[in-house]
Amino acid sequence: MSALRFPQVFVWLSLGLLGCGSTEPQAGRLSETQLPAREQFPVVGAAMQRRCATLDCHGQATRNLRLYGYGGLRLSSPETPIVDPVADPTTVQELDASYESTIGLEPEALWRVVAQGADPNQLSLLRKPRGIEKHKGGELMRTGDALDRCLVLWLTHMADPAPCEQVRDTPRPEAN
């Protein structure tokens, strides 16, 4: 290879390397099919609100996966003010914030699951409540139970409200 042709080779090599580069999403470039469905989130969020979002867990402003809504941490704004933090139902703004918190937990890993069909079991969103990964709140669900199905189906574009509603409507336990 002559010295004169080196810049050309460098340009072609660079272009080739760019072509092999990651196709992972960049900020603001995700389409709806690359994210779990926002329109299904109200029922998924209600299940998470019941199991994960109490004020002593993910209903704390200092935590990651911060969840907002009735029975937990509230989010008030001039557009959707919270008048009574204990009584007001969950607002659309709170659902939006919880949704963003959920999809922002591990954006790249979530994108691989939702857009590329990767195994959802790699996500901390499932591993932590299953107790596989260290979780301060301990084991909150088992593979295949209602909350697990609610989350897995939502993450894999097969959202089913039934298991989510089952979690949301779980009655108080009775004493032995």
Binding site: L55, D56, A61, R74, L75, I82, P85, V86
Partner: peptide, 14 residues
């Protein structure tokens, strides 16, 4: 009172 502190607020149930 970890969750039920006073006053009632966006992050406390009162």
């Amino acid at each position: 009172s970890g969750c039920h502190g006073d006053p009632k607020s966006l992050s406390s149930a009162g």
